[in-house]
Computed example of a mutant assay.
Amino acid sequence: MNSVAVPGKYHGLRSFAFGDGPELADDLLDLVIRGVKTATCCTPDEPNLSAPGERWVVLDGRGTPACVIETTEVTARRFGEVDAGFAHDEGEGDRSLDYWRRAHRDYFGRQGKFSDDMLLICERFRLIEVLDNRLAS
């Protein structure tokens, strides 16, 4: 069972893990905790759509609660409309728009969802609290 207790003030929050597998979840979580990743995106049909002010418990690749984030901005954009600033805030790879496009083409392709004009829900967030002290630096 998960060894990290979620403080009472966060009980009732929805939870999710980044990515589509344990390794990617852990890699992206590490970027969040280090303050590098402050944005993410998903398709409109995913269950983890958020609204500004909503807080989430982020899970690691094993499903253990790791941190709490708060959504600060949500916008809808087509894949080709994502700009360099958003790509940078997603924090992945070299943080360039070219890297973002390659990585997300692959990610959404694995899910069978990719198209050049696909609609994305682009979210910016801030880290509220790290729940697993082993992850804090």
Score class of each variant (00 low, 15 high):
residue 30 D to S: 15
residue 58 V to K: 13
residue 88 H to E: 15
residue 27 D to P: 00
residue 113 K to W: 09
residue 10 Y to W: 15
residue 16 F to W: 11
residue 94 D to S: 13
residue 129 E to Y: 07
residue 98 D to N: 09
residue 117 D to Q: 03
residue 41 C to R: 01
residue 131 L to S: 02
residue 57 V to T: 07
residue 101 R to W: 02
residue 22 P to S: 14
residue 136 A to T: 10
residue 79 F to M: 13
residue 116 D to S: 13
residue 113 K to F: 00
residue 94 D to T: 10
residue 10 Y to E: 03
residue 55 R to N: 03
residue 88 H to F: 15
residue 61 G to E: 03
residue 39 A to V: 02
residue 74 V to R: 14
residue 60 D to P: 03
residue 100 W to K: 03
residue 76 A to R: 15
residue 70 E to D: 07
residue 121 I to R: 12
residue 60 D to A: 10
residue 29 L to H: 02
residue 106 D to V: 13
residue 89 D to L: 14
residue 82 V to I: 15
residue 48 N to R: 05
residue 4 V to Q: 09
residue 34 R to C: 04
residue 57 V to D: 07
residue 33 I to Q: 03
residue 130 V to G: 10
residue 127 L to Q: 11
residue 86 F to Y: 13
residue 65 P to F: 09
residue 93 G to H: 08
residue 16 F to S: 09
residue 32 V to T: 15
residue 6 V to R: 06
residue 12 G to N: 05
residue 43 T to Q: 07
residue 107 Y to W: 05
residue 11 H to S: 14
residue 65 P to N: 12
residue 76 A to L: 14
residue 101 R to C: 02
residue 53 G to M: 04
residue 102 R to P: 02
residue 62 R to Q: 14
residue 133 N to T: 13
residue 98 D to V: 12
residue 137 S to C: 01
residue 61 G to A: 05
residue 52 P to A: 00
residue 96 S to H: 06
residue 118 M to G: 07
residue 49 L to T: 02
residue 40 T to S: 15
residue 42 C to Q: 14
residue 39 A to H: 03
residue 71 T to D: 04
residue 123 E to C: 01
residue 42 C to Y: 00
residue 21 G to A: 06
residue 40 T to H: 00
residue 5 A to P: 00
residue 128 I to A: 04
residue 36 V to P: 00
residue 106 D to N: 12
